[in-house]
Amino acid sequence: MPDKLVRMLRSRPVEPAGARPVMLALGGDSGSGKTTLAEGLVAAIGPQRCTSVCVDDYHRYDRAERRALALTALRPEANYLDIMEQHLQMLATGQPILKPVYDHGTGTFARPVYVQPREFVIVEGLFPLYSKLSRACFDITVFLDPPEEIRHRWKIVRDTTSRGYTEAEVREELARREPDSAAYIRPQRRYADIVVRFAPAAGRADPPGTPLSAELLLRPTVQHPPLTGILLDDVRAAMNLNIIRDDDGTPVDCLRVHGHATAGEAQLLQKALWDGLAGGRTMPHGLGRLGDGTSSAPLAIAQELLLFHLTQEVYQR
């Protein structure tokens, strides 16, 4: 189905109400934080209202076959991207799919699973923004863009603790993947409505252990929340909004949430932002939760903004 037709179908009123889900894409390289961001959103919305899908399950070959063919999972020809596109179209129009399952622990395929789209569908993976057709399936698109040294550290921790790799094997794989990452994954950044980057605050010498700050580029491809009324003096220590130049030179709003803010400043910001955006709804528990059980205020703020976009899509229909 052409991408323009997908957009037309998704723009039409649907009966019964709610039959077409709100679709969110979380793209980015391996180990960039997509799953952590997605899990917080699912917990906040509630699994009874939200379906989460990983499109890295559409690999064409298992791990041993990729090794034999000298291919990485970041190469388009190593994945069934046409099947992924078909399934995204089906989910976007409220239809169930029989999704393949790739076991990242063993590097082999498992039994497919039946996936029924709920009110919200969160799609994460390497290729959700790769083609016009896949991008046409989404209401909001996000790209996770941490500095490479941080992404490498996250990937090493994840792959050595849950996927059976040694640190040397992960570093070797990162080096082998770099040309494909540069050619096929990082270019998808240009298509995101929001680019999220977790990194140390620039120009500061914060002590070790200081939480990472968040930088969100809010591109004008979607309508973002009115933040100027929220950014009063009592929360400016934790967050600021500026206009900067994007990679292509165009002006773009840049929201920075400071990891070095005190716990009190961060809590005040989270409450002010939620009160200003949520329309009286109760703030959900679990926002900002990291894999090690700790919490990050910048992550929680990023999740709050995405929750705003998801719920606004519902209200605008």
Score class of each variant (00 low, 15 high):
residue 159 D to Q: 08
residue 314 V to I: 14
residue 203 G to M: 02
residue 211 P to Q: 05
residue 221 T to I: 08
residue 7 R to V: 13
residue 215 E to W: 05
residue 67 R to Y: 06
residue 30 S to D: 06
residue 218 L to K: 02
residue 10 R to C: 10
residue 2 P to Y: 14
residue 200 P to F: 05
residue 156 I to Q: 04
residue 205 A to G: 07
residue 180 D to E: 06
residue 63 R to V: 10
residue 27 G to A: 15
residue 160 T to R: 06
residue 142 V to T: 14
residue 50 C to G: 07
residue 48 Q to T: 14
residue 269 L to S: 03
residue 226 P to F: 03
residue 194 I to V: 15
residue 270 Q to S: 07
residue 119 E to R: 15
residue 130 Y to E: 06
residue 58 Y to F: 15
residue 9 L to P: 04
residue 19 A to P: 07
residue 97 I to N: 00
residue 34 K to E: 00
residue 106 T to L: 12
residue 17 A to M: 09
residue 238 A to R: 06
residue 100 P to I: 10
residue 184 Y to A: 06
residue 232 L to K: 15
residue 288 G to V: 02
residue 95 Q to N: 12
residue 244 I to E: 12
residue 243 I to S: 09
residue 28 G to H: 03
residue 239 M to P: 04
residue 96 P to F: 05
residue 192 A to H: 00
residue 165 Y to T: 02
residue 39 E to N: 10
residue 99 K to T: 02
residue 9 L to F: 09
residue 118 R to G: 04
residue 82 D to A: 15
residue 293 G to T: 08
residue 284 P to Y: 07
residue 314 V to S: 06
residue 130 Y to Q: 12
residue 201 A to Y: 00
residue 213 S to R: 01
residue 106 T to Q: 12
residue 98 L to E: 07
residue 200 P to E: 09
residue 237 A to W: 04
residue 59 H to S: 11
residue 273 L to R: 00
residue 135 R to N: 02
residue 303 Q to Y: 01
residue 98 L to G: 04
residue 301 I to Y: 02
residue 66 R to V: 11
residue 275 D to R: 12
residue 124 E to Y: 11
residue 130 Y to I: 05
residue 124 E to F: 11
residue 109 F to I: 04
residue 299 L to F: 12
residue 149 E to V: 15
residue 101 V to K: 10
residue 279 G to L: 05
residue 9 L to G: 02
residue 192 A to S: 03
residue 281 R to T: 14
residue 233 D to C: 05
residue 62 D to I: 08
residue 186 R to H: 10
residue 26 L to K: 00
residue 205 A to N: 14
residue 189 R to K: 12
residue 178 E to A: 10
residue 237 A to P: 01
residue 224 H to W: 15
residue 247 D to F: 11
residue 57 D to R: 05
residue 310 L to V: 09
residue 252 V to Q: 01
residue 118 R to E: 11
residue 179 P to K: 05
residue 49 R to Y: 13
residue 112 P to C: 01
residue 290 L to A: 01
residue 42 V to M: 04
residue 256 R to I: 08
residue 152 H to P: 00
residue 219 R to W: 11
residue 11 S to V: 08
residue 161 T to H: 09
residue 88 L to V: 12
residue 233 D to K: 14
residue 137 C to A: 15
residue 225 P to E: 02
residue 83 I to N: 05
residue 70 A to H: 15
residue 155 K to P: 05
residue 150 I to E: 07
residue 256 R to D: 03
residue 222 V to K: 03
residue 194 I to L: 07
residue 31 G to D: 01
